[in-house]
Design a protein around this nucleic acid. Structure first.
Lengths: 132, 132
DNA sequence: GCAGAATTTTAGAATAAATCTAAATTATTT
DNA sequence: AAATAATTTAGATTTATTCTAAAATTCTGC
């Protein structure tokens, strides 16, 4: 493992958020001011290929990276607001049903967050930051 | 509902595949040769907002659109190859656990498809068509 | 420690998906 | 029919990501 890989892995592991490449980039620049965005992509992709991090792809949002420990996501269908949840672990049942080649799974539960239930459709585009 | 909306909804409903915007575009052009890509985006987004179709976001792939009936996806972690599967319906359990505001959920199960189990990493980029 | 091989980084161009803008067109309402 | 609203179009723009080729770094065997 290279130094950058270790550093990025540690950033992702110690963050409770779900970081985008941009966010990882900003954090890395604090320590390595000359670092370049493509390097973050390279490293993150290698970590992902190695199975050390999880990629979270939510509709209409840039990919986010997450620790690979078993947990699920609650996502607002309108603004994309993302929260961790812990539903039952389905791994065993899925392996039994589909075979041992199952690696892992993503369970994304969609709802309307309290804010979006009020300020009704037509929705604001995803780009506007989901309200905190 | 406009004519285009109806047409596109019907295309998505009657396709067993998971269509990308491009694929929908091609099919629409057969019937409406002058139609423009942005119109497909407009219509599909409206259908999605209305909850009539499902958007399937898989890591590293363009979004695909799917009928909203309950079913899950088996995805090759390496090449992105996508198959429908039917695992247990978790809706009731999720509503019970998280509240009635749960709308629906996505369950994506990752594995390595037979081809990718052989031709090992480093992976071909997602761009190359996942093998049929 | 050094030559050669392999990997990683960099800078910047290129690509691809999706959105936006503003004008033109079409539909709907009154 | 006039006024209002919604949709389409064309094309530019944005954003995320990948690619390319050269430079820098790291690794390996001797």
């Amino acid at each position: 493992m290279t130094r950058y890989e270790q550093e990025i892995l540690s950033i992702i592991r110690h963050s409770s958020e779900h970081l985008t490449i941009e966010q990882i980039f900003h954090r890395m620049k604090e320590k390595y001011p000359g670092i370049v965005l493509a390097t973050i992509y390279n490293n993150v992709n290698r970590l992902w290929e190695a199975g050390l991090i999880r990629r979270v792809s939510i509709e209409g949002q840039p990919d986010r990276y997450d620790r690979p420990h078993r947990h699920d996501h609650l996502v607002c269908r309108r603004c994309g607001w993302l929260t961790d949840i812990a539903f039952d672990d389905l791994s065993a049942a899925l392996r039994e049903r589909l075979g041992e080649e199952v690696l892992y799974y993503d369970l994304n539960v969609f709802y309307l967050c309290p804010d979006c239930r009020q300020n009704d459709f037509p929705r604001t585009p995803y780009k506007e930051e989901p309200h905190e």
